[in-house]
Design a protein around this nucleic acid. Structure first.
Lengths: 328, 328
DNA sequence: CTGTTAGCGCTTTCAG
DNA sequence: CTGAAAGCGCTAACAG
């Protein structure tokens, strides 16, 4: 039945007919058991995280890209949910799943998880850089220093100096990729001779309501002329706030988003954004995992530079007084 | 190791210690093989469909609800992608997967698929009503006649008579749930003594660009005062069109969406929408599948009535001439 | 080219 | 309560 070349065609024919008449369906589980390959890639995520993330354009783009790539490689994606986002609980669910390898989406830095997985010989990759340990190299990163730099430089070129960089935090911590973006942000300020001030960095938990309220708070006490926003949900929350309170984009505030271009293009107003090639990085991530599964030597990928897509949410900074004069 | 009560505690202790010192991890595949239970639910979808759907708020809500419910029942979701959305190709991928049962998201009406699955004894459910055959009862439906009715009635109460009902089509066909909504739409028109005209129904493929262009076309030749839009992507496309072309919502056009309330609440303008309880129906769908998997008698669920959430995108119809007079 | 058999790692049963 | 053994359905190896 498995198209072996050792079988005479007429015999195969007879077998196939018998199979058909008996409604025989090979037992897939036994095949997986025997062959040791399930052709399943596990996507590990905490229940809380998935319920927040699924509404996030970045996650949707990643999910789509991973699923498509896995399909092309003959794999399907198993969504593995862990009740807690703790290393031990992740390890527990991982070792109880039938999958050839695991893609771990973790909101916490999990060095103890990597050692558990290594010890157990389970192939895994992380979807981004979670750890600052150079040994933990099983992830595909983007060039986030560059991303933060190019957004800030563009705003500085437009004469903005009173910029806020809004970062999502997870359990009170700034993620490594956001730290990199801040590095790029500071580098640009430095080049333009603008002093970095701590209040330029605003941390916000990534949910819609919290983001909305914190943006509201921010604009009650301060009037920055430009915002860089590091996650999609907060970007939507900020735009909703501006809509509700009559701020015009980009006349009153310039906004730069970070994330998949498609999303920002379909948004109104059209957003200028730092665009990462999610398809590319997802493909590379699956390639990396397959290399590990098959025991092939792992080829390290250089991060791909993001791209600044300029749309309608950013404009040259004009001093309010000048504007007021013009209007009268 | 499986906490059998037949084992003396001290023996168990010794076994556990030995396991630990040898870094023993039970082989999950063998367990699945032996027990015949993978605790995996397959979500079957075509590659094309998933890449469109994943950007759609309705899919995200459903995916989230299914994953959460499966998790609560001790299952994980396997995303099974089929290259073609044909019954045979669906069946092919289904029978090659390790899963205890399957949730089928199919854009086509697939009566031949159900018979293949029945014959093979594979437990399955459909995510919605795909077939008009009363025997195909393995799905959880919503009360779509009521949904179409309540949206239309609300607009009629606001004096709108020039209404368009915009329906997504798949391969040129209106899906059964949309046919039901049209039934409700017509019922409301009937009650208010308004004659149904064929041009009131506008069919549009659900993608963003096509939707945008077709809405554009529609408004170049006609000026309906109210829109009911049956899918989220088209709703976003229509709102983007109105934004781009300076139509004010709800002063110039009233808009009612269909789908998850959360999405429309976070949208600007806030949309009046017919809200379906996706969490409820996803829970019921998983329950139904688990009943079939476990061979328990299948309890049929009555569809739950949708709810009309009134927000800012609908207003009383005012004759343009009256408005023009007021303005001068 | 065909038919038979060992054995994957687990769970369950059964004898002691 | 413990240790031994059968067997799940398949694939691969081997003898004929």
């Amino acid at each position: 039945m498995n198209a072996s070349s050792l079988v005479k065609p007429c015999t195969r024919q007879r077998v196939l007919e018998a199979a058909k008449s008996l409604c025989y369906i090979p037992n897939k589980t036994a095949r997986v058991f025997k062959s040791g390959k399930s052709h399943i890639l596990g996507l590990v995520i905490s229940t809380q995280h998935i319920s927040e993330l699924v509404l996030n354009a970045g996650f949707q783009a990643r999910f789509k890209a991973l699923t498509a790539k896995a399909h092309n490689e003959g794999y399907n994606m198993l969504i593995i949910t862990s009740t807690d986002a703790e290393p031990n609980s992740y390890f527990e669910v991982i070792k109880n799943q039938v999958a050839d390898g695991f893609i771990i989406l973790s909101p916490s830095i999990n060095e103890s998880l990597t050692s558990l997985l290594e010890e157990a010989g389970i192939p895994y990759v992380f979807n981004m850089k979670y750890s600052n340990n150079p040994e933990d190299s099983y992830y595909i990163s983007s060039d986030d220093v560059e991303g933060g730099y190019m957004a800030a430089k563009y705003l500085l070129d437009l004469n903005h100096t009173d910029i806020r960089f809004i970062l999502g935090i997870v359990k009170g911590t700034i993620m490594p990729f956001n730290e990199d973006r801040v590095l790029g942000f500071k580098k640009a300020l430095d080049e333009y001779g603008i002093a970095f001030k701590p209040e330029m960095i605003v941390t916000i938990p990534g949910q819609m309501e919290e983001s909305y309220n914190l943006i509201h708070q921010l604009f009650q006490t301060q009037k920055p002329s430009a915002l860089m926003i590091s996650n999609e949900t907060t970007t939507v929350a900020a735009l909703n706030y501006f809509y509700d309170y009559g701020y015009r984009i980009p006349q009153d505030v310039s906004v730069i988003g970070f994330g998949p271009s498609e999303f920002f293009r379909h948004h109104r107003p059209n957003l200028t954004n730092v665009s990462y090639d999610i398809t590319w990085s997802s493909d590379k991530l699956v390639d990396l995992l397959l290399q590990r599964i098959e025991g092939r030597p792992v080829a390290l990928e250089r991060p791909k530079k993001p791209e600044l897509i300029i749309r309608g949410s950013t404009a040259r900074y004009v001093q309010p007084s000048v504007l007021a004069v013009k209007e009268h």
